[in-house]
Design a protein around this nucleic acid. Sequence first.
DNA 1: GCCAACGTTGGC
DNA 2: GCCAACGTTGGC
Length: 151
Amino acid sequence: MKSEPEVYSIQDLERGGREGWEGVRNYQARNLMRDEMRVGDLVLFYHSNAKPPGVAGVSRICREAYTDDTQFDPESPYYDARADPKNPRWVRVDVEYVETFEDLVSLPTLKADPDLADMLVTQRGSRLSVQPVAKHHFRHVLGLAKAKTRA
DNA sequence: GCCAACGTTGGC
DNA sequence: GCCAACGTTGGC
């Protein structure tokens, strides 16, 4: 899951412990949250629009998809005038803090790793804010993070 | 249902 | 700040 750290970072999650992942306004991302994410699933927390961008840590799904009510709030930046309270179109999940990597695993690092050549986030033009991660990719990224921590 | 125009994302 | 990628909108 991607977040701009200036808006919401892994450090914010560490402080708060838990957060509703609101504001996703893309159908593909929504469908992933609604159909794939289950309590206990681990999440790579990615800092986008950062210098450098990359995976900053790990979080975990602690509540499955439910209505993202910011869609009905005209004051919210995530307001969607077309959303119908009787048939909400956007959902959020809740995530909880797991860990912060000692050093962020940067996008250039991910892109340079042949084992991650087919990971979605390393693909050109990959801008989906919620992406499925293959188990072996997940483990590999954790391995990179641990290696950095030991060094 | 096509597709051009437009808006957003996000790396660089 | 630029711009490639790509999603959405709306005219037809």
